[in-house]
């Protein structure tokens, strides 16, 4: 529609949008600047004369060096990646199969099982972390990656199932029926016809599941204890803060590097991520 004069477009659309973008992205800019700023500049009070918030003239890699040489940051990255990838794969496997069953098969209690999945989708991790910690200990999984790989699916599977149900429901049932008449068993029809068609949905679920695992904090905080087992988020929190001394430079460098894998995955699959995100709220 016609939006009126140029000045109206600026006042009502462009300027607000620019402000939004600025506020939403500024913390990342701040993160980047801080991680390259030498300590001398870093710890200069804001009301000092030579406080220079938005730029640094002496960029340094010192904080990154500290991260890799004085802490297990490399290990944390590898741990997080391993945990995120494996738990995502497990969740995709379970979620795709369960989503298929709930969306396309007729069996007793199909409807109520769908509701159960939706309800577990809504169970927050913070509700169960204390008893889970006990169970993890009973299973002798404490302080191993498996404590997270096996528990992350509790929030990833319901999510994947829910999302996949939407994708599966959108596939005409005739395709599957045709395959079965063509000589495929139900199992093969699912494997060769329905799942390949649902690949975009699987990608979306996978990407979001990956970012969710990478983002998870409280289980990792509670279940892991030794420095070399930690994930990035937990490692950064516990090893770069000593008492009330914050190693801000390295902290920001760690936050920056810890965000990179998610950002890369996200940038490659923005469309899938967005369609998954919006698909997940369609209900």
């Amino acid at each position: 529609m016609i939006e009126g004069a140029l000045w109206r477009r600026w006042v009502f659309y462009n300027i607000p949008l620019i402000l939004f973008v600025f506020v939403l992205l500024f913390p990342f800019y701040w993160m980047i600047v801080t991680s390259f700023r030498p300590d001398g500049e870093l710890y200069r009070p804001w009301n000092a004369m030579n406080y220079m918030p938005f730029w640094t003239n002496k960029p340094t890699l010192e904080h990154f060096r500290y991260l890799f040489e004085e802490t297990d940051f490399g290990r944390w990255m590898v741990n997080t990646m391993f945990i995120a990838v494996v738990s995502t794969l497990i969740s995709l496997f379970c979620g795709v199969l369960a989503g298929y069953a709930l969306a396309r098969l007729n069996f007793p209690f199909a409807g109520s099982l769908g509701t159960v999945i939706f309800v577990t989708y809504l169970v927050p991790q913070t509700l169960l972390f204390i008893p889970l910690a006990e169970i993890i200990r009973d299973f002798h999984l404490g302080d191993t990656p498996w404590s997270l790989i096996l528990t992350y699916p509790t929030f990833l599977i319901p999510f994947c199932t829910w999302l996949m149900m939407g994708y599966f429901k959108a596939i005409p049932k005739e395709l599957e029926e045709c395959a079965r008449i063509d000589g495929a068993s139900r199992w093969k029809a699912m494997l060769y016809i329905i799942i390949p068609i649902a690949v975009p949905g699987i990608l979306s679920s996978g990407i979001i599941a990956f970012t969710l695992s990478w983002n998870e904090f409280i289980y990792a905080l509670v279940f892991l204890s030794s420095p070399e087992q930690k994930t990035v988020a937990v490692g950064v929190t516990s090893e770069l803060i000593r008492g009330d001394v914050f190693f801000w430079g390295s902290l920001m460098a760690g936050a920056l590097l810890g965000s990179v894998p998610v950002a890369i995955v996200y940038s490659f699959f923005v469309e899938h991520y967005v369609s998954g995100l919006t698909g997940s709220v369609k209900g």
Binding site: E177, C178, R180, I181, S185, P196, I197
Partner: peptide, 20 residues
């Protein structure tokens, strides 16, 4: 007998061509 073993072929209204 499941459909796969009936040795019939069916043409559907919306054709049901496998899109991939």
């Amino acid at each position: 007998v499941p459909p796969m073993d009936r040795d019939i072929a069916m043409v559907f209204q919306n054709y049901a061509l496998y899109p991939h």
